[in-house]
Amino acid sequence: MSPFDTDIAHLLAGSMLLVSFLLLYQDRMFALLNVFALQACGLALSVAWQAYLQQAPQLFITAVIALGFKGIIIPVALHRIIVRLGIHRSIETVIGMGPTMLFGMALVGLSIMVMLPVTQAAGTFVREDLAFALSIVLLGLLMMVTRRNAVSQVIGFMSLENGLVLAATGARGMPLVVEISVAFSVLIAFIVIGIFLFRIRERFDTVDLHALELSGGEST
């Protein structure tokens, strides 16, 4: 593998990480969806590049799933749900944008410090790719924790999953990657359909999970 090939892979993975930061500070629903679609495109390119480098044609399927399902179908479906439910105005966050961004940077630092020493043997390419992937996973988790709104929690989860698919494709020759990405897509599809079918809004007047918490638990 030439240094140029590695640079391209890092460029694509790095841009996905950058988009993860963009996701963290979006405060409008539609903008959030667009940024997520951008990350899915980044993932598709990244996976396709890996498929070319490793000469693993089955990875192209994963790339197509990333582009078609997560880049187009899911954002369009969520867009329609948001319009239908009328929740497009703004996103409630648990903590402010500033602290969230700082926390996000700390998480990236953490994942670099954790991943680089332990993967010494695995070669430069895999180490840095994994550090990027872990950062994206952790930022996705951070987003799920700091958002109260059901739709943006799903987006946080999908961004986390983008990081996982990036890690799985970066591990050379890992089998079942395609199956795993299909399994994840089914999971996400179920949940998005679930949001729509159960029409959480009709039940709770809002998809704000804070309101859900008040109705449940052991209030009696």
Partner: peptide
């Protein structure tokens, strides 16, 4: 029910 949906959502997340 409200409680069932909340439980399912929490479990999913």
């Amino acid at each position: 029910t409200n409680a069932a949906l909340e439980a399912a959502w929490k479990y999913f997340i």
